[in-house]
Amino acid sequence: MNKIQQFIVNLYPTTKFLIVLFLALSAFITPGYIWSYLVLPICMFLAYLAGCFKEFSNLAIKALLLIVLFIFLLQAFFYPGQEILWQWGIFSVKQEGIQFALSLTSKIVAVASSLLLFFRITKVKDLVSSLEKLGLSPKVTFIFLSTLQIIPEMQKSTHVIMDAQKTRGVETEGKLMTRVKAFVPILSPLVLGSIASTEERVLTLESRAFSAKGNKTSLYQVNKTKHDLKVRILLLILFILLIVWRVLS
């Protein structure tokens, strides 16, 4: 890890959140759509600095491309307007529709890419740890962390069960009805198995004093770095400048 990468990754979760919050808010404060769209490349650049450019870009495309495209199609053709840019039979693309789509999608892109950046540069473990310090119940933390561990485990079991059902002669390919019939034999052992295990897991958690009263300790700690305060002050200054500029202009 180089220095800049370390700097970003090691920031405290709430500081990282303030950064993306600033980016997202700026999209709403600044008029027009150009700046809002620019938030995406800015996030990409920050992701590049944090060493997760590829991951970020892939997810951003998956999350945003289709929805932005469909918004444009729906609004361009069906937004009520007079100024026709292009016509084909009963279909016409209107200037007003394009305008509306631009302002709507630019905001979506700005908010979504900021949030995506936040989740890319913040470990879930760090995030929940910082939230716990802010007073989040340990039960919520438990549910969240447990979920993130169970999903990959269940995905593994899915493949095991699918293979097992295939060897027992359950067809998983072919006609629609055949595939529909395969669904329940795969899903139900998975569900019943994991739900039944909760009974013993209660015994496990009770044995580990999960329901004991009083404060819990947490071995895992995220700590503020010496840069956190500087970054926060910088963000505040930028935010004030942005507001002042918006009010004056």
Partner: peptide, 30 residues
């Protein structure tokens, strides 16, 4: 202390390492 048959349901499911897993009970006790 209570330990039972099934090894697979006797993990907390929220810890990444064995060290942290063993710590879980003491964390809960504060």
């Amino acid at each position: 202390g209570y330990v039972f048959q099934n090894p697979f349901t006797q993990i907390s499911g929220v810890k990444d390492t064995v060290f942290d897993e063993i710590s879980f009970g003491l964390e809960n006790l504060g």
